[in-house]
Write a protein that binds this DNA or RNA. Structure first.
Lengths: 128, 128
DNA sequence: CGCATAACTTACATTTATGTTAGTACTTGA
DNA sequence: TCAAGTACTAACATAAATGTAAGTTATGCG
């Protein structure tokens, strides 16, 4: 939970309300959000598969990132009433519209990241 | 100062070392970095002018953001041996190469930010 | 029965990012 | 002499992001 009022929050609101670039960055800037976007770019995934493909992230944090992306309208969450439960996440149209943004961020990183293979490699599907 | 070792830091290193997109986001993602990039896009600025154009940021934080951008190679810092001191900041070639990245982040935000004027407005030069 | 699975939630703990306040050295102009 | 300007730094304080570990619910399977 965030504080109701703080200089920190006020500044965030000020910037996101006045800077289109900062607004975009705010939506995609979480620690695991690029990895999630990259995976969902190939199609819907269920929670357990997302989780297995990201062994370094804890359940709580993964859920937090997914919830934020859902409430920002980037992904949708579909529950199948089965047992055991099945929940699938996929990009919304808004999420898909990020494709050129993701591409250019990736290209710039590929050009300039020290140690980059310069191969337009995005997030590795299986992080070590 | 960061801890020498923590899961948090390890994950950051893991991601930035494997995801070009995350690497790029890491360089431009600080609270005031979009505002600074936007201002310096027009040319060099001295510290006091940068500061006056950003009344909401504290001196410490502004310096921190500038130092990070400098150490990441996005901006350069030039000291003129005068009295009173004069220090000018400007984009390096690497910083200038971010222009298309900044444009597309801005365009996406302009299209999708609630309350956006849809006018390709970037960071306002003078935040309220 | 007891264990496994799925998709979480809760309570707690730590790390990192951001912000506040005061102070520094130096010189010029009033 | 005294305030003002310049570009900071230091010590301290708070807020936010991220991480850990265990528990929950419901059912099928051996």
């Amino acid at each position: 939970m965030r504080k109701q009022s703080s200089t920190n929050l006020e500044n965030e609101i000020l910037i996101n309300g006045n800077c289109d670039m900062a607004y975009t960055l705010d939506l995609i800037g979480g620690r695991w959000k690029p990895s999630i976007l990259w995976r969902l770019a190939y199609g819907a995934m269920r929670y357990s598969d997302l989780r297995r493909s990201l062994p370094a992230v804890s359940e709580r944090i993964l859920i937090l990132q997914l919830r934020e992306m859902e409430s920002d309208g980037l992904i949708s969450r579909k529950v199948y009433p089965e047992v055991p439960p099945r929940v699938e996440y996929q990009l919304t149209d808004l999420g898909k519209s990020l494709e050129p943004v993701i591409n250019i961020l990736t290209d710039w990183g590929s050009e300039n990241r020290p140690g980059s293979e310069k191969k337009r490699v995005r997030c590795h599907m299986l992080l070590p």
